[in-house]
Amino acid sequence: MKKNIILLFLLMPVVFYGQKFSTRTGTVKFEATVPSFEEVAAQNKSVSAALDASGGEVAVLALMKGFRFKVALMEEHFNESYAETDKFPKATFKGKIEGLDITKLNATGQVFTITGDLTLHGKTKKITDRVVVTRSGNTITITGSFKVKPADFGIEIPKVVSSKIAETVTIEYNLPLNKQ
């Protein structure tokens, strides 16, 4: 009983102030296809994300093993040689959506600026890009895309295959966040 009361007090700020939105099933896709070569793309459909609506803080976590490729060998190379996912099992983004006011959101969407730190392959890089935020009922959806260079994260692509993998990788995300 005492434990329950303590728990209630701990949860109070969440109930009253913290408008938390989150998802376990966000999607992150990346594509590094070079025209006229085989598609180099992968998708992760179980990305976790949380948004603190009052401050616009966003946290995203993608488990690297969750990226699936169409070609099994490509997936193996990604895991073993490039992203080294045994050593670096996750990619995270911690940032902020500037000027987010959830009461003014609508279903058609508004464009905001998102800034934050992307950590991947053990390296962190600052990302600033545009983000589209829509709201319908208790779901806030954050979508957008940005470009990164594998080299910035210390991912080396051997010369033999470098002509088949784009120098800049496009990362697309879609995070439908539900009210907690």
Binding site: S22, R24, S46, S48, A49, A50, A59, L61, L63, M64, K65, G66, P89, K90
Partner: peptide, 16 residues
């Protein structure tokens, strides 16, 4: 399922 790691946001282990 296949263990893909630990999710700190939710404090859960993920399988796919």
């Amino acid at each position: 399922g296949r263990c893909i790691g630990y999710d700190e946001i939710f404090g859960e282990v993920k399988l796919d």
